[in-house]
């Protein structure tokens, strides 16, 4: 048993070395396939983060009239927070609004002067409401409209809701996010399938060149395990080396792209690569080895039916 294993391992290494050109070609093709998988993983991550950043910027702003009582405001906040769709309600009081306004216009003498002339604070309190998903703003806006309809006409509470002003752009953005996610899933699937098929075919061709040898081994009385073993080992080695090479190629690429992605997408690809290295490494090397092994087993078994 042990001698058999030892012989299979030795024969696998010797075969790998003596068929150096075929081995090299297989590793090269597998490296390209794994690079495609790696690049897809990274760009998927980039897309996900970008979409999330964009979604985070979307919210509904609700402005209260200046005469709104704190009690009514608190009640509305409580009702909004009770909604499933709402993830965050940020309250800005009248005083805070005034401070922010002064800060924003501190270089604008005229506006500050006009504000001083008024004496009283002209700004109302406001709410910034966020939803988990851009599609849910519609519901929240409808809910706010219902609340508004219940108000007494003499003592209104809500002055303005900006959703209806921004509805067009929010809808468009929702559409773009949905399409981008769908496109990325489809691309990912297509590229993965292509990578798997290319690898499988390459290994099949590599083993096709040895089909005569396989039949000779059978005729000499070698068992299937004894014939298959070295090819399985070689498949594993192809995957391992290709995975490591793919990582070595990706490293300088993300190092180079890192700063650019930081300023453009607010997401540093290089940091992601370093922080999630174990995950990326195991996916690339693991899928490489699994692909190599499975392809070898399938390819050899075709020629074992002598």
């Amino acid at each position: 048993m042990w001698t058999g294993f030892k012989r299979i391992v030795r024969s696998g290494f010797v075969g790998f070395w003596r068929n150096a050109f075929v081995s090299l070609a297989s590793i090269f093709v597998m490296t390209v396939a794994l690079l495609v998988i790696g690049a897809t993983m990274l760009s998927d991550q980039l897309l996900g983060v970008t979409l999330k950043n964009i979604q985070d910027k979307v919210d509904i702003n609700l402005y209260f009239v200046t005469t709104a009582s704190q009690e009514d405001i608190d009640a509305l906040v409580a009702r909004l927070e009770a909604m499933d769709e709402v993830t965050e309600v940020r309250y800005t009081s009248r005083d805070e609004a005034l401070t922010q306004f002064r800060e924003r216009h501190k270089n604008d003498e005229l506006t500050i002067q006009a504000l001083e002339e008024l004496g009283d604070n002209p700004l109302g309190a406001s709410l910034a409401i966020k939803a988990a998903d851009t599609t849910q703003y519609e519901n929240i806006a409808t809910f706010i409209e219902e609340q508004r309809a219940l108000e007494e006409p003499q003592a209104p509470l809500i002055d303005e809701v900006n959703y209806f002003k921004n509805k067009g752009s929010i809808d468009k953005l929702t559409g773009i996010i949905g399409a981008a996610q769908k496109a990325s899933v489809i691309t990912l699937a297509v590229l993965m399938i292509a990578a798997v098929l290319i690898t499988f075919n390459t290994i099949r061709l590599a083993i096709y060149t040895t089909r005569e040898e396989i039949s000779v081994m059978r005729l000499v009385g070698a068992s299937n395990t004894f014939i298959r073993g070295p090819f399985m080992l070689q498949g594993l080695m192809y995957g391992l080396i290709a995975g490591v090479v793919a990582i070595l190629i990706l490293y300088p690429v993300v190092l180079w792209i890192g700063p650019a992605s930081e300023s453009f997408f607010q997401f540093n690809l290089f940091e992601y690569f370093v922080n999630d290295f174990v995950h990326i490494f195991s996916v690339l090397v693991g899928s490489g080895m699994a692909l190599g092994l499975i392809s070898s087993v399938l390819a050899v078994s075709r020629y074992l039916r002598v």
Binding site: G15, E213, G221
Partner: peptide, 14 residues
């Protein structure tokens, strides 16, 4: 891809 010696040894290894 095997030498004369290895070809013969293969039959024994198998």
């Amino acid at each position: 891809h095997k030498t004369a010696f290895e070809n013969i040894a293969f039959a024994m290894e198998a």
